[in-house]
Design a protein around this nucleic acid. Structure first.
Lengths: 216, 216
DNA sequence: CGATCGGTTGAGTCATCTCAACAGAGGTGG
DNA sequence: CCACCTCTGTTGAGATGACTCAACCGATCG
């Protein structure tokens, strides 16, 4: 039986095996807002799962331009990179708790072969999300990007009201836009009665059809 | 001993095991320019390697906007997606030959455990390239994108003169630009004496430092 | 109560796109 | 072998979506 229920939200069922192993054997760690969980040059010997809060993975260019690779929320596994060295750093979006487990420990536990399948599936999920992100950055307009982002938040973080644990700058760096453009698109979506914000980090979808049509 | 030498160019050494298995057991197929190798809805039961020519993976939006995921050249493995269904279609860039092998056959051959490592490494390479692509699309200028593309071509396709097997439209859809912008940036790089074109699909780098500085 | 921080809004600029004309290469048929 | 056509790529002019810079606003915190 899965222990994933112990997370704040339920994770992707495909990750249950992994989440399970992390729950059983992982070490719980707490991080402050913006604290680094691992750096870009680090090795990849640890795997993580978010218990509470949120995490971003980031990559910097020499002149400071920043790209966010992905956001991770409660119940999701992160830090599973296939190479020996981190390509992205990971940072806490807000005060948060994560579970850490050595990959070697994971491998040792892998007599249960479903675990190996779970690692593979987590990698798959990662690649698929990245590919969707590619289309977003390469071919979508600012409005479509913001709509896609909100739709994704709703899909992942549950029904009804959703709160955004990240800043506008984080959203902008995820979508390849500026904070001003993100802000404008958000107010635009709001004036078109597609979403409604109650405070700048808390929203609700008003017109799901229109939102997913925009998200394309 | 690796059979990778039998490819037109040598592949990534990390893929030798895979390339080897494909050479030994794969079926050779020929495709005409623009012919589909697999479709977006297809299953992922086959793995491929390019023997001659080039391949692109593409994804379309409902209104026709196109994003190219990656280009593959002689000696490179493609079609290794972790999920059960293709997220991108693959098409021949030009008349080309590929080797095809069932993943199940690959798995059967995997008593040689280096093969499994090779599959893992190919996936790793894929993810890493996609992550670089993400930064390119999210945060680089048109000029930097084109420079990055040319630098990548030089790195992958060898020294001295390089020829581009793909159209300007392909390059544009890879870089998230229009053909006109790609063309303008190319002439700009040429007038700054950084690269030199002899015909629109054949070029040589004149100033490697400047090119990699632009590619950032 | 002032300072600071994150977010919004406005005005003007700029990079890239759109639309259109043109040019060259390659293929085809006479 | 030439004339023509088509296809791909280049160039130019103008439009526009997103960016930059700056002011403002509200919340939070000392």
């Amino acid at each position: 039986m899965s222990l994933a229920y112990a997370f704040e939200d339920l994770g992707d069922p495909a990750q249950d095996g992994l989440a399970d192993a992390l729950m059983r054997h992982g070490v719980r760690m707490a991080f402050a807002k913006d604290e680094e969980i691992y750096a870009q040059e680090d090795g990849t010997e640890f795997v993580y799962a978010v218990v509470r809060g949120g995490v971003r993975t980031i990559r910097l260019m020499s002149d400071g331009r920043r790209q966010i690779g992905e956001f991770y929320y409660a119940g999701e596994v992160f830090g599973l990179e296939p190479g020996p060295e981190r390509r992205y750093a990971a940072e806490a979006l807000c005060e948060c708790e994560v579970l850490v487990l050595k990959r070697s420990a994971l491998r040792r536990l892998a007599d249960d072969e479903s675990l190996e399948r779970a690692v593979w599936q987590a990698t798959r999920r990662e690649l698929e999300r990245t590919q969707g992100h590619l289309m977003l950055l390469g071919r979508k307009t600012a409005c479509e990007r913001v709509a896609s982002f909100l739709a994704d938040m709703v899909e992942r973080r549950g029904s009804g009201a959703v709160d955004l644990p990240m800043s506008r700058q984080d959203i902008a760096d995820y979508l390849g836009l500026t904070i001003e453009t993100v802000s404008r698109m958000l107010t635009q979506l709001q004036t078109s009665r597609i979403v409604e914000f109650a405070g700048c980090r808390h929203f609700q979808v008003r017109n799901h059809d229109a939102l997913s049509r925009l998200a394309a």
